[in-house]
Design a protein around this nucleic acid. Structure first.
Lengths: 341, 341
DNA sequence: CTGAAAGCGCTTACAG
DNA sequence: CTGAAAGCGCTTACAG
């Protein structure tokens, strides 16, 4: 019957000591409890021989520590999400933490259910990219606030800051970066810069649009409202975008945009292709600036504002672990991103 | 003191019934246990009022079922990995399962540690993309076999099949797809097709290289060993690749490759850029075929063999759940991928 | 320095 | 139809 999975109890009986002694030794408390070092050795050795592993659930039932960190993302498959995962993974490896991942699919209700499910399973912390809506309702986080307070579980919001959120967050300076990108377009000769974006209520997107408008002001360029192309669905068919762009391109020359600022990566490829199809340009670079990962090997021919999502992931994780040791910590970290062509 | 988290015990005491009754009712066994339906109603209602949630760890300590599925990937940030995640997530949502993700970083030792950690935390199943080596040692899975047998935990290998693996797997037909892609290049006029790949010991990569060789045979093209460019590191500097390609391009015309088959997506962009830099081609399409996600909006200008990783993820998850209900199930599913230009 | 005992919150035979 | 009791495998005051 020695085939059964070893437990502290079985080891204690076999060695003729009490279960507490085994628990203390295996819990690394031998020193502090002043256990006879010879006894401790016997226990340690036997445990090793048997390949003993304490039962996770029994431990958690007592400790309420799981070593698991919840991750709630709007989309698990977006490029910038997988980059965040990478950054998070690096830090987690050092802390021996486990990623429990779930996707809210840009759905508030699902997001809430996911968080509740994570709470149920016991997580020591939460990193969330709060989902945003296309309607005018601002991104909020009531459940998060409640959760934070009641359970004393640290939370970090990444990539975007929900309305009214006072906890920790890690974001990039979307507004300034957008402004710099648009200014770059203008400095390269653009007179009428259009902005293409999802009409998404995320602070990141809103910031980028604001930065676009900032740039028009600082460089004293006119801001025709028609040049602001806001799409109201993520899965917007290219057709929608196509129609809007065609309309702009058929304006009289002195009202027609001659450069484009696009707030997200996927949208930038679609914009580029549609523009190329409309009026084949000569050579690179295209008069398009956008946010995106843009690994150099894609050679997209656009001006890219580098999205530092590996760093955002890494910093989010680090901030979370810091918060676990200092309940009162509260900071907003802004990752500096470098614009590049 | 009614602020404390409600437990079955507290509810039982409050309602003056026994803990077993509460447990049965809340466990949905009221019917089967023939609990007085009025009593059952009172319990149900009070539990709802209090927002009672059973303690996950206490439950798991008895049941040994967690609802968590482990995911072990070599890289969490590769594009094809995030596509698999997406497919998996879709299926998991239907089964109310939770993703516990970890990255092996292409390191066998870490892979093993990750699996052990997942076992410790209790998972009901495992989906793994086994990591492969660059040395000649074939990809094996001894720990997996042991785990499978001892714990009766279903396992699915995705994307590639390790040597000697007899369990469930979901892969695409790499060999045939590679052959088709290379034949397409030849049918478009290529005489001397080179193959660029990582020298990775994964069945997927090996299959693609074999498919390349198949195509050369069926189309009776010569197979100069110099045209097989195998890189021995994933993080190979572009320089390495660059040198190899330059060497090929400086061969006499009748020995110089005039088309390129690349086994992986990332490598294909690097190959393309290097080729363009060496000798600017006129127009698309480039004489390059490769495996890759290639969302149409990238317009890479290469022939792409579509990588059906969303489907591979989805099927892996479905297969896993099937296996959970039928211990003896054992199948290898091959996802049919469509080649496209 | 060590052990007997209660407890974490649930489940499940086993008696009535 | 319902309850008292033992048990899952660990932790941790509390006595000696």
């Amino acid at each position: 019957m020695s085939k059964a999975k070893p437990t502290m109890k079985s080891i204690a009986e076999e060695l003729g000591v009490s279960r507490s002694t085994v628990s203390f030794v295996l819990g690394g408390e031998a020193e502090r409890r002043r256990i006879n070092s010879e006894t401790a050795q016997r226990i340690l050795q036997r445990a090793k021989e048997l390949g003993f592993r304490p039962n996770y659930f029994a431990q958690a039932l007592n400790n309420r520590k799981t070593g698991a960190i919840g991750l709630v993302f709007p989309d698990v498959h977006e490029i910038y999400m997988s980059q965040m995962l990478r950054g998070i993974d690096e830090v987690f490896a050092d802390h021996d933490a486990t990623m429990v991942l779930s996707s809210s699919r840009m759905d508030r209700v699902l997001e809430k259910r996911n968080i509740e499910s994570l709470l149920y399973r016991g997580i020591d912390g939460l990193i969330i990219v709060p989902c945003a809506d296309f309607n005018s309702r601002p991104t909020e986080v009531p459940e998060l606030a409640i959760l934070l307070k009641e359970k004393h579980i640290p939370v970090v919001c990444a990539d975007r800051i929900p309305n009214g959120w006072l906890g920790n967050s890690v974001v990039q300076d979307d507004r300034t970066n957008a402004q710099l990108a648009v200014e770059l377009l203008i400095d390269q000769g653009a007179e009428r810069v259009a902005c293409v974006s999802f009409d998404l209520n995320a602070s990141s997107i809103r910031g980028r649009i604001a930065g676009y408008q900032d740039a028009l002001k600082t460089r004293r360029r006119s801001a025709d409202p028609r040049w602001l192309v806001l799409l109201d669905r993520v899965d917007a068919k290219s057709q929608d975008l196509s129609d809007r762009l065609k309309a702009l391109l058929s304006l009289p020359v002195n009202e027609r945009p001659d450069a484009w600022f696009v707030t997200t990566e996927g949208l930038s490829y679609r914009t580029r292709d549609l523009l190329l199809r409309q009026s084949p340009l000569g050579n690179h670079p295209l008069p398009i600036a956008r946010f995106g990962a843009d690994p150099s090997h894609y050679s997209s021919g656009m001006i890219s504002v580098y999205q530092p999502h590996v760093e955002i992931g890494r910093l989010s994780a680090e901030l979370l672990f810091k918060q676990m040791h200092d309940q009162n910590l509260c900071s907003t970290q802004i990752v500096v991103a470098s614009s590049k062509v």
